[in-house]
Write a protein that binds this DNA or RNA. Structure first.
Lengths: 246, 246
DNA sequence: CGATATCTTGAGGAATCTCAATACTAGTGG
DNA sequence: CCACTAGTATTGAGATTCCTCAAGATATCG
């Protein structure tokens, strides 16, 4: 099982023609490269490098000098920050089609880790920035996505500072549901790929409180827990009421 | 007093030559327009419109359709989000040289209010975006500033989710101090221009807790409170220790 | 099937919130 | 110049939510 996985890494790590795989890329229409036409995408493809990470592996370290930029092709990724004493905050979960990293930024200021087995499409910062200068619509697309990240972060600040544990949990599940729908997956049957500890660090709670509130939603018949960390949203209306969203 | 203020608004609201006042603008070297040379700045100046707001006035409403973009010339501004039941989160305080709003964004998703009497330099989104297409280095500068905002938001998520009330207060004072220093002001004698309620909404606390922790820092002789909401940092080392910053 | 990691549940404690009273401050009018 | 007022800040006491510590249950993987 592990061996066959390693083989797959070698296989798709460096293809004969990089540009080629962009055209049939799973996130071709959703990632930032959707701003490019079929000829331009070849240019971008030449700069790219596909990488695979196992669940739990670190993709970028916090405080790394040379910054990189990548698209997530498959898998779930978490982005986090640490306090000196080990307390942790997850600033976001990233899904296929999302990008990770910042262009023009000198330093990597967050940890990026694979939550599940993950495929990413990585670009060296420098060469990507050169391309941005030549393709302003690509730069504009990235700018928009960056603004969207900021918007999400600000929304999350409201959650962290002002919502109760129950509201946080419900909001979190609805967020996962919405993002699953964007990827064309069933919004009422979502995969809790991350550990309770990660959910806790994302919501500013402890593992135990996360667990208790999930149990609460279950006993109120708002959600059901299935095998393989699947969560079924049974009563979406009630979940939305519990989230108290704006 | 009030009347003379109103006169000043009329006076500088629309000058004879807009471009002219850019050259002697107080934030000429710090705002995003620092990316422009003296001829380019005239082009930008033509798109600008100076506005004044009294302390407490709303600058932009949340959920406004036509989005605007502005530089803060003078004063302190707060950016906030609301929950349906009135709970509030301040997502940031903005100071001279900072910008407010998002280019390319269709909707205004936050409230922007003047904390003190404020002067801003406002641009219509559309015409600014046209200029960005012509001046890629300006677009790049804005992109960088947007990334910086995101970076700050992520840092604040760590504070909101994982820091204690004491750590939050100390971190907040150090942030004000750092930003004051950037503006060339005394970093050890900072102006708490905002209400306790605003500080509470920024830190995810209640007014009472904010007040108690400030009193705590005072009784430990780490800070002193002066007239006019001035705070003197007496023992910076201790304040940094209390903040537990990364 | 056993070992390890993860999750759930319980009981008690701590930090923060809520409610309430008091003190301060700045501006207003006498 | 001083008293008055309205808004704001501080302080206190009790309530509450969430955290901490600990035990037990479940899941996963070889």
């Amino acid at each position: 099982m592990i061996e066959s996985f390693k083989l797959k890494i070698l296989e798709s790590g460096r293809c004969a023609s990089k540009a080629n795989y962009c055209h049939k890329c799973a996130v071709r229409d959703r990632a930032f490269c959707a701003a490019l036409d079929n000829t331009e995408i070849d240019e971008l493809g030449e700069l790219s490098d596909r990488k695979h990470y196992r669940a739990g592996e670190t993709i970028f370290e916090q405080a790394t000098k040379a910054s990189v930029f990548a698209n997530i092709i498959e898998g779930t990724v978490k982005q986090s920050k640490l306090l000196p004493d080990g307390r942790q905050s997850i600033t976001g979960f990233l899904f296929p089609g999302d990008f990770v990293g910042k262009v023009y930024a000198e330093n990597q200021t967050s940890f990026i880790e694979a939550v599940t087995d993950t495929h990413i499409c990585m670009f060296a910062r420098g060469s990507l920035e050169d391309l941005l200068d030549k393709r302003p619509h690509l730069a504009r697309r990235l700018f928009n996505l960056s603004n969207q990240s900021l918007e999400r972060a600000e929304e999350w600040m409201l959650l962290l500072g002002r919502k109760t544990a129950m509201e946080k949990l419900a909001s979190f599940l609805l967020l996962l549901s919405k993002r699953a729908a964007e990827r064309g997956e069933d919004p009422d049957n979502i995969h809790l790929a991350m550990l309770r500890a990660d959910i806790a660090d994302y919501l500013g709670l402890t593992i135990e409180t996360v667990s208790r509130r999930i149990s609460g939603l279950k006993s109120e018949q708002i959600i059901q827990l299935g095998a393989g960390n699947m969560v079924r949203i049974v009563d979406r209306r009630a979940l939305e009421a519990a989230a108290n969203n704006s």
